[in-house]
Design a protein around this nucleic acid. Structure first.
Lengths: 197, 197
DNA sequence: TGGACTATTGAACGGAAGTCAGTTGTTGGG
DNA sequence: CCCAACAACTGACTTCCGTTCAATAGTCCA
C-alpha cells in the first residue's frame, strides 16, 4: 500500500479514463456548476493543475465526459448487421433501454446535459441522434427527399429518448420494457409507411 | 433624453419584465456560463446589485427566464376548446411551429436549456411536456393504465420537440410546416390507436 | 413639504476557474 | 547500472465572477 502523500504517476490513457469515470459519477449526480474542479481533483487524488493538463477548460472536460457517455451508448446499441431489419430494430431498442436502466445517471446527464445551449454540448447530442438516424436510413431504399426523411427520423429518436427518460423516472410497473419496444417499433413502422413511397 | 448617469427608478413589474426579456436575448444566443451578471446588468443599464434584488441567484434568474419562455409557449399554443379534437390538434401543432419559427432562440434555450441536469431546470421542461400531455389526455376516454399512456404521450411530445428543432436548424425547403403537422398528427393517431383500447 | 418606503447603487468579499514555474517519477541509451 | 531527457504532476498564485450589504436617492402619501 503506497502512502497517500506519494505522487503516483499514470499513463495518459489510464488517467484520462479515470478522470472521465470520475466525471460521470459527479455530473450524473449534481448539476454542472455545483461540481468544482477541486471536488473532482480531490476525489481523483490528484492536483487541480493536473486536470488542466488533460482538459483545457472545465467546459471541455464536461464535453469529454458526455462524449464518453455518448460513445458508450452507441457501442452498447450496436447490433449485428446480419440480422433481419425488424429483428435488428427490436434488438437495438432493447439494448437502448438496457443502457438507460443500467446507466441511468450517465444517460440523464447526456440527455439533459446541455449547458444553456452550448453548441459543443448540443453537437454531442445531435451526433447521437444522427448516428441512430444513419443506422435506420441504411436499411431504407433511396428516398426522394432524404433531408425531410432525416428530420422525421430524428423526431422518432426524440420519441424514444423522451419515453426512455419518462420510463426511467416513473415508478416501477408503470410500463414494461416490452411495451416500450412494441410501441416504438410500431411508431417507426407507421412513420416510414407514411413517408417512404 | 435622460442622462445615462441618472438613476432611473422603475416599478417592480416593469424592471422584472425588462430583465427577463434581456435574459432571453442573452441566453438564447450564448451558453449559460458565457453570460455574466455584469453583461446583463450593463445591457439593462442597471447595477449588478439590482439584479440580485429581483433574483436570489444567477441560477434562479436563468430559471425565471426559461419559465417565462415556457409560459409564452403554453399561451401561444392555447387553442379554443370548442373546436373538434382533430382540428384542435392541427391548430395547436401549427401554433407550436409558429412559435418555434418566430421565437427560435427562446425555444432553443428552453429545449436545450438544462444546466447539467439541474432538477429545477429539468422541472420546467417536464412541466411543459406534462401540460401538452394533459391537454391530449383531456380528450381521451378513461384509460385502464393512465400512467403508461402518459409515458407514451410524453414521447410523442418529444417527437414534436425534436422534429421542431431539426426543422428550425435545417436549410429552408427541407420540409414544410404542413408536412410536419401532417406527420405529427398521424403519429399521434397511430399511437393512440395502438394504445387506447 | 417632509418623512417613510423601497428601488437602486457601488464597493468589497469569497470562492472557484485557470496559469505556470518548478518538482519528481519513468524510461531508454550509454 | 547510471544519468539525462522527457513527461506526469504539484501547489501557490492570479483573475474573474457570483454574491453581499450598507449607503443613497427617487417616489408617494400624509
Amino acid at each position: 500500500m503506497k502512502k497517500a502523500t506519494t505522487r503516483t504517476r499514470q499513463t495518459v490513457d489510464v488517467r484520462r479514463a479515470q478522470l472521465i469515470a470520475q466525471g460521470m459519477a459527479f455530473f450524473g449526480t449534481r448539476p454542472y456548476d455545483a461540481v468544482s474542479i477541486d471536488d473532482i481533483a480531490e476525489a481523483a487524488g490528484i492536483s487541480k493543475g493536473l486536470l488542466y493538463h488533460y482538459f483545457p477548460t472545465k467546459r471541455d472536460y464536461y464535453a469529454a465526459v458526455l462524449e464518453a457517455a455518448a460513445d458508450d451508448l452507441r457501442a452498447q446499441t450496436d447490433v449485428d448487421p446480419m440480422l433481419e431489419p425488424d429483428v435488428r430494430m427490436r434488438t437495438g431498442l432493447e439494448a437502448y433501454l438496457d443502457f438507460v436502466k443500467a446507466r441511468g445517471p450517465a444517460y440523464v446527464a447526456l440527455m439533459r446535459g446541455g449547458i444553456g445551449s452550448d453548441p459543443v454540448i448540443a453537437g454531442i447530442l445531435d451526433r447521437v441522434r444522427g448516428h441512430f438516424v444513419d443506422t435506420i436510413v441504411k436499411d431504407l431504399p433511396a428516398h426522394p427527399r432524404p433531408r425531410a426523411l432525416r428530420v422525421l427520423l430524428r423526431g422518432w429518436v426524440g420519441f424514444v429518448e423522451v419515453t426512455s427518460l419518462a420510463w426511467l423516472e416513473s415508478p416501477p410497473g408503470t410500463i414494461s420494457k416490452t411495451q416500450l419496444v412494441d410501441t416504438a417499433s410500431r411508431m417507426l413502422v407507421s412513420l416510414l409507411g407514411d413517408v417512404v413511397p
